[in-house]
């Protein structure tokens, strides 16, 4: 039994005639990082909404096929159980702060209060997450006064404190500068190390090469390619689906034209390995 499984999923919003998802089948394993890539409007966010159960619990429309979490159909899950099972981070840093709390500490505690966790336990868990994410300097600040990047880290902490098994992260850095992006990905990496299953929508392909285990390429509501990150991001065919490969891979292909590389690298460390080997071959 797969951890998360989509079987022949098709979906249409209540208005408009076109299906946004067309016969999608996916099987996701526990503890892996999955990156959803593809052009805007391809259906990535819709897939996220579906896995989290916002479709069909929150969005109406026509849903065909089976969407199973731990073998149980999404329609049978209670919203409360889904909230604990799966965390969801949205792209806009400004809509995720509850707007009802005076301090970052209280903001992070909000989800646990809603789950009726006892107060001493909440305080302990919030303090723990603040330490883990390095948010000590922000904890007494008003969430309204934080920068976009700080808010996004607080949002991640606010979700992670609820200790979900699955984490859905929809373009967390699209509105952030490079430094804030790096901070957010440090946190995502901590989550990966903790064995969380992560579904990540992200356009920065270098970051995907670095952090994802599997890549799912979505195009026009269908799965165009899927597989190991290395295999997909070094496959020139991905370019046909509107994906720009990592620079190292592009460089690799450029070099392939004249010389033989033993493989196409996708991350920095792979590139160093491949090119060092290539140079050594040249010298011999």
């Amino acid at each position: 039994m797969s951890y998360i499984e989509l079987k022949g999923i098709s979906y249409k919003y209540p208005v408009g005639d076109e299906k946004v998802l067309k016969d999608i089948s996916l099987s996701l394993e526990k503890g892996k990082v999955y990156a959803l890539i593809g052009a805007n409007g391809a259906g990535k966010t819709t897939i996220c909404n579906l896995i989290r159960g916002f479709i069909p619990h929150f969005f109406k429309g026509d849903l065909d096929g089976e969407m199973l979490i731990e073998g149980r159909d999404i329609r049978e899950w209670e919203m409360g159980d889904l909230a604990q099972k799966m965390g969801y981070i949205f792209q806009n840093p400004f809509t995720q702060i509850s707007g009802t709390k005076d301090t970052v500490f209280e903001e992070i505690a909000f989800g646990l209060e809603n789950l009726r966790v006892e107060v001493p336990v909440i305080k302990e868990r919030v303090a723990e997450i603040i330490k883990l994410f390095g948010l000590e300097s922000l904890q007494e600040k008003n969430p309204q006064q934080l920068s976009g990047g700080q808010r996004q880290r607080v949002s991640l902490a606010s979700i992670m404190v609820m200790d979900p098994e699955i984490l859905i992260i929809d373009e967390p850095t699209s509105q952030l500068d490079p430094q804030a992006t790096e901070e957010v990905f440090k946190i995502i990496n901590i989550m990966k190390q903790r064995g969380k299953t992560i579904i990540l929508v992200e356009h920065k392909i270098e970051l995907i090469a670095e952090y994802a285990d599997r890549v799912i390429l979505v195009e026009d509501g269908k799965v165009a390619m899927k597989g190991k990150t290395k295999d997909i991001l070094s496959d020139i065919k991905a370019m046909d689906h509107g994906i720009l490969l990592p620079q190292y891979a592009l460089l690799g292909y450029e070099m392939q034209k004249n010389d033989r590389l033993h493989e196409i690298p996708v991350t920095e460390s792979e590139a160093i390995g491949v090119f060092t080997k290539w140079m050594a071959g040249k010298e011999n």
């Binding site: 969801y88 949205f90 989800g111 009726r116 966790v117 107060v119 909440i122 305080k123």
Partner: peptide, 26 residues
């Protein structure tokens, strides 16, 4: 338009799960 994401973000934090909640502020 932001109301949609605001609603989902609250849902993601179990806002509608219980009628009564605990509160660390008292």
């Amino acid at each position: 338009a932001s109301t949609e994401e605001r609603a989902m973000a609250l849902e993601a934090r179990a806002f509608t799960v219980n009628k009564r909640k605990t509160s660390i502020y008292s």
